[in-house]
Structure formats: C-alpha cells, structure tokens
Design a protein around this nucleic acid. Structure first.
Lengths: 213, 213
DNA sequence: TAGATTGTTAATCGATTAACAATC
DNA sequence: TAGATTGTTAATCGATTAACAATC
C-alpha cells in the first residue's frame, strides 16, 4: 500500500516521517558517490541507527528492497521524494531580510530539495527594493496578502526578531499559510491546522552543555 | 537529589534533557513579561505539551515548585541554567565565514544564553583577516590547534559546505573538540565521545510537506 | 479552611529491537 | 545452491499520561 492515510488506517507516526528526509539526504549523498545499491545495515551505520528501524520505517509505505541485495538507491530516492511530496517544487516565502534572512536567501540546497524561495519580505522601508538572494528584491511585508493570492504559497520561513515573531506568524496564518519554519527563539501560538517547526541553535547548544563539565 | 549522574543512578533520558532548553527559553520570556510565578499547566499550554510531562521532567532533578502556587520563574530559570551547565559562559568557535557563518557570528542571543563565539575561522585566504561579528576577525583554520590550546574551547559550530564538512569535523575532533553543531546537510561520522547536533532547514521543510497536498 | 497545584505512582501508550521465514 | 538481506512479527523497552495524596 502506498499511503495509509487514504485508506482509513492508522496514521504513520510523525517520528517516522521526521526520519525520512534524513534517509533521503543520505541516499542522495551515496548516489552522488556513484553508488547504486545499499542496505538497511549500511544506511544504519551511516546514520547511527539500527537497520531494523530503517526497514520498519520504510515498511509503512511499501516494499522498496530486494532480499539478498538491498535497495536500489535511485529508486528509493524517488519513492521517498514521492512520499514526502517533494517530487515537485514548493514555493516558499522568507520573512525577514536581516543577516540570517540573507543567508537563507543565498542558501543553495533548497532548489534541489523541492523548495524555491519565491519572495523575501521585510517591514523595514530601507530594505524594501534591495536585491537579495538569486535575482530577488525585498518586498514589503504589507503586500503579503496579494503575494499569497498570486503564488498560492503555503510555506513560510521566519527569520525575524523574537519580539516580532508572534505578530508576523499571525499575519502569515491570516493570509492563508499553513506551514512555518521559525528561526526566532520563541514558541508560537498557532491554530491546529498550522504546522510550525523550529530552528534554535541555543537549544542545541544548551542540550550539548548538559553533558559537558 | 540534584544530579543523578553523580550517584550511579539511571541516567536521565536524553529526550528530557532536550526539552529543558525550551522550558528555559519560555520561562525567560515570561520573566521578561514581568511575570513572577507560573504553573506546569500554564507552561504546558504555552508549549503545547501536557502539564504532567513538565512536572515529570523537572522531577528528575529535584523539587522546584510549591503545591498550590506553582513555580517561581526566576528560581526555576536559575535551576535549569545550573542543570544545563549554562550558568557560565562557554566559548564556541565558528568554522565557516560565508553567508551563514556571518549570520551566526552576528546573532545576538548567544551571549545571554551561555555562549560566546570566541573565534571565526575559514580556509579561504581572501577572507582571513576580514572583520566579522562583534569585534572579531576571521582566522586561518590552519591555526585551529593553537586556538584550541589557548581557549580550551570544546564546542564548534560548522557552517561549511557539505563537501568539506566531514574533513572539517575530523580536524575539529583531532584538535580536541567534543561538541559540534553542524549546519551542513550531512550526517558526520564521529567517535563515540563526540556529540553532534544538526540543523538542516530542508529536513524540516520535507517533514512539513508530507502533510501538504 | 477551601482551592490550587505539586511530585509521584501506576497504567497506558507507543517506539525500538531481535529474530526469522521468505526469497532474491 | 549458499549467502545475504528484506519485510514482518512479537517481545522488549521506554516515554507519556492519568490520577491522586500531599501540602502550600
């Protein structure tokens, strides 16, 4: 079965979904190396997890391997891309054109991974109109609604200061977005239909220092 | 008991440790709002998790609340800072002075959270000597060993291209570092005594698109 | 005191792993 | 065929939650 959601079955655990992008990333590196097949054992060693977990995770979605030989890397990549819905390019808007926003706008990996930053927005009138990223110009965040209507974008990245983040998120959601990647160090209050993921380097640092002396 | 590790008890689950920085971040926002006490219920609502989980997590480390009233915010912040070892400032070195490295060097939140970027290093001779961040100049990554000896730094942030990441990590570990925050989209192979955390926006995006149509 | 909330226990729930028949 | 590796089952392991006595 390809997708249990369509059959009234138990949903696939979110923790499993969260590992698939890492599998995909690893498989693409192997493919870049010229490799054609791999095994759950090899993948597990690369990633520091058990081969059983990889096989179990994949088994939620179908049968992608061959007993005795393993997985065809190109094939499994394509399957994972389909499962994750990254076999098309998703438009993304970036809010915040400071130092971090500029770095995100310049980041090369999005396009090959299923994402394209179609607009960078900011509230600072000094910044509006300035070039940023690959052939973009910073737009006025006040024009958000129009942009969402034109591009049908569902995903935003927020690279704004913590004090502005909740307000910006509310405006994004009001405009119709449902997926937010938030770099501001704050937990956003959002309605249930909106998914937020967070990136906060301090959280990672503080996690690491627990184990340091 | 303050720290079960010192008593031969079962170690505290890593997943619990991972939540503490988020609790701390939230408490500090409440403190900034002028709030003096909070409850596990209020915290849980802020974070979208159960109050029972918060109480259970904290109970691994001691008793920090008062029945009937809840938690003194300032007190709990200080306790969490002690538990996470961020009641002092940790030196951090940043490797990679590209667009992302520059954004990280400029980031304001580190200092107030227990971290100070003491050096930014790169291999690009064009960049070495250029100013970056708050009063720093880009140093030659070839001088890594000397820098580690001088600063006794244990933590590095890697903002280097994926193709350089494994080699850079190996050099950092060889120089004596044991904690790495890796922004490159690759899983690093490291010895068991080294802890690596990863930040990859693509992984978050692809996780979100699974739920989109 | 009455109301609120903690810290903790035990039950529930869910995720990981070990093992192995199937089969390439 | 013999060796390797899958997909799956059942057991184990661990995390979360509900409930409540303790007590502020």
């Amino acid at each position: 079965m390809k997708d249990e959601r369509e059959q009234g079955k138990a949903p696939i655990p979110d923790i499993v979904i969260g590992r698939l992008p890492v599998y995909l990333r690893t498989l693409r590196l192997l493919a870049d190396d010229g490799r054609e097949v791999t095994s759950s054992q090899e993948l597990g060693e690369h990633l520091g997890i058990s081969s059983a977990q990889i096989r179990k995770d994949l088994s939620h979605f179908g049968e992608f391997g061959k007993q005795g030989t393993g997985y065809n890397i190109e094939f499994l990549c394509r399957q994972l891309q389909k499962i994750l819905n990254v076999d098309t390019i998703w438009p993304v808007i970036l809010v915040g054109a400071g130092s971090l926003g500029t770095a995100i706008a310049n980041y090369q990996e999005f396009e090959s991974s299923g994402f394209r930053i179609v607009a960078v927005m900011d509230e600072d009138l000094q910044k509006i109109g300035q070039p940023i990223g690959h052939g973009l110009r910073i737009k006025d965040f006040a024009d958000l609604n129009q942009l969402v209507r034109e591009t049908r974008v569902q995903i935003a990245v927020m690279a704004v200061p913590a004090h502005a983040a909740q307000r910006v998120a509310a405006q994004l959601i009001e405009a119709g977005l449902n997926s937010i990647l938030c770099y501001a160090p704050i937990t956003l209050a959002v309605p249930p239909h909106v998914r937020v993921e967070y990136i906060d380097p301090v959280v990672h640092f503080q996690h690491m220092t627990y184990y340091l002396r």
